[in-house]
Amino acid sequence: MWALTLYRSTIGKKIIMAVTGLVLVVFVIGHMAGNLQEFLGPARMNAYAAFLKSTGELLWIARIGLIAATVLHVLMAWQLTQIKRAARPVDYTKREPQVSTLASRTMRWGGVFLLVFIVFHILHFTTGTVFPIASQPGDQFSHTDVYGNVVSAFRTPWVTAFYVVAMLFLLLHLFHGAWSSVRTLGLSKPSDHPLHRRISTVIAVVVWLGFSAIPVAVLLGVIR
């Protein structure tokens, strides 16, 4: 079975990471675009949220797909990290990185931070579980007033700070990940200035700006 051939090889595991990573990239871009409707006022934002909920089974199919992608992505990351650890039992006293980027060197720990963020974020805005501590005191979580939930959350400075820092990690993760997935899948053509390098930079920066704009705008009182 080809899936097993992939699962058993370091390159195959990395290919699984690339595919699941790209699924998450597509989601993240769509999620950002959807969220930017917060700037268009409560009517638009809450109508959008109501529309998503109205899709019923479709929403659940998408959710299960995203959870599966995340689980596979993290599992492969964990397994490859174990293999990497075993590959150099005695480390150098001195090793000087020559060309690797900050983004590439923070993929593992940045990924762990993103995982923590993802869990927190779902408990914050989807289920409302941590809403009482991570929003304005006294405000109630509402399943219908998504707009209001966002405003209440980001008027709290530490919540805004946490989200902005998480988006910095996402910027780094995407800067390396979107580029490296193209290479992992063997889709890149030899070039000194490859197109996928530029596209990945644009994706990383746009996603970072788009997501960060909302909490910052709330904190500054632009969105009320």
């Binding site: 090889s9 990395k14 075993a86 990185p97 060309v99 590439s104």
Partner: peptide
């Protein structure tokens, strides 16, 4: 298939495209 399989059997790590190899 067989060279990649042997590479794994030998206990080398996986590639995450740091790019350090091509510099070295």
């Amino acid at each position: 298939l067989s060279m990649v399989a042997q590479m794994d059997i030998e206990g080398f790590g996986g590639c995450t495209l740091f790019g350090e190899c091509q510099a070295a």
